[in-house]
């Protein structure tokens, strides 16, 4: 098992290498470079901060003007050797700092949505399968289809309107006020976050929940009439113990492998919702960074998100091997 994990970690290195090249090339595709873009911005804006010399220095430091592969080597070299993600021209601070500031809350929201998705989808999926075609199954199927059909951002808008008209409160943001958001972490701040986070959690998790309910229901319906279930019933097991030990355990497989794809899709789905709900997460910043040709910030974000995706794939594979002996003994 340990060998398997080490092997998988080694595989991640070439994969990350290819991903980083793809990210870099894609970001460089639009015409112009970030420094020209910034100079252009400076011409239209009044708050001039950089002199021509500053910009030339940056050009030299990040290799602009040189061939693409030199730029790439400088970029990835700075990240790997010095942890320097470069300078964000759009945010006007170190890209690494912007990422580090935004990533924790982004992860809290994403993982929160993920947990919400599982905690809600699993029992409902099981209920829908075990009591197939019952009233509960029909109701949850109906809600599930609505959840699948409504885009997240629309749901966010509806909730915002409802909040304003019915409860006279705003569901936007993750904190009650800007001051709390800026303040250092404390119990009060965590409490405030918990008060606000559940609305974005539901909004972001909704689509995934509805999808997972359908998957769980279908998987379990396949398993419920398998011979090993009948054999276990014939041994005298009670229905509940039987259900948990055999069919649910078997039906978990696709559920767990879906885990790997859920994180990236949550992060992607989160971006639009974050813009609508004004969440202090990476989505809107990433979007603006890309629009402003902010190579270092955009590239840094994409790099970190890709790494997270790879790690979550690895986690789901390890979980799957732990869950299913057929995979452990596979090779």
């Amino acid at each position: 098992m340990l060998k398997y994990i080490l092997q998988r970690l080694l595989y991640m290195i070439p994969v990350m290498f290819v991903i980083s090249i793809l990210i870099f090339v894609t970001i460089q595709l639009p015409p112009g470079d970030p420094i020209s873009k910034m100079m252009e911005n400076q011409r239209t804006q009044i708050n001039v901060q950089f002199s021509e010399q500053d910009l030339e220095m940056m050009r030299a430091r990040y290799g602009y003007g040189g061939p693409l592969h030199e730029q790439y080597i400088k970029w990835i070299g700075n990240i790997l050797l010095h942890g320097d993600f470069g300078y964000s021209f759009y945010k006007r601070e170190a890209a690494g700092k912007v990422i580090a500031d935004l990533m924790p809350l982004t992860l809290v929201v994403s993982i929160g949505s993920f947990i919400f998705t599982w905690v809600v989808a699993l029992p409902i999926g099981v209920l829908s399968a075990v009591r197939q075609y019952s009233i509960a199954d029909h109701i949850f199927t109906f809600i599930g289809f609505i959840g699948l059909a409504i885009p997240n951002f629309l749901l966010a808008l509806i909730l915002l309107v409802l909040g304003l008209t019915m409860f006279q409160t705003s569901f936007t943001g993750l904190f009650s006020s800007g001051e709390i958001q800026q303040a250092p972490w404390s119990l009060a701040k965590v409490g405030d976050l918990l008060k606000h986070i559940w609305i974005p959690m539901i909004v972001i998790g909704m689509g995934g929940t509805a999808g997972l309910i359908r998957i769980m229901r279908a998987n379990l319906l396949d398993e419920l009439h398998k011979p090993y279930v009948e054999a276990a019933r014939a041994r005298g097991l009670s229905e509940l113990r039987l259900l948990i030990k055999y069919p649910i355990r078997h039906a978990m497989n696709p559920f767990v492998s879906g885990f790997a794809y859920l994180l990236p899709s949550l992060v992607a789905g989160e971006a639009i919702v974050a813009i609508v709900m004004n969440l202090p997460t990476e989505g809107p910043v990433l979007l603006n960074a890309l629009l402003n040709l902010d190579v270092f910030l955009g590239g840094g974000f994409l790099l970190i998100l890709s790494l997270l995706t790879l790690v979550s794939t690895l986690l789901s594979d390890i979980l799957l091997a732990w869950l299913d002996p057929r995979i452990r003994y596979g090779s």
Partner: peptide
């Protein structure tokens, strides 16, 4: 007690 036709699938592989 009962034994079944399909020994391949009457035992859970898990």
């Amino acid at each position: 007690a009962m034994i079944f036709q399909e020994p391949m699938t009457s035992l859970s592989p898990m």
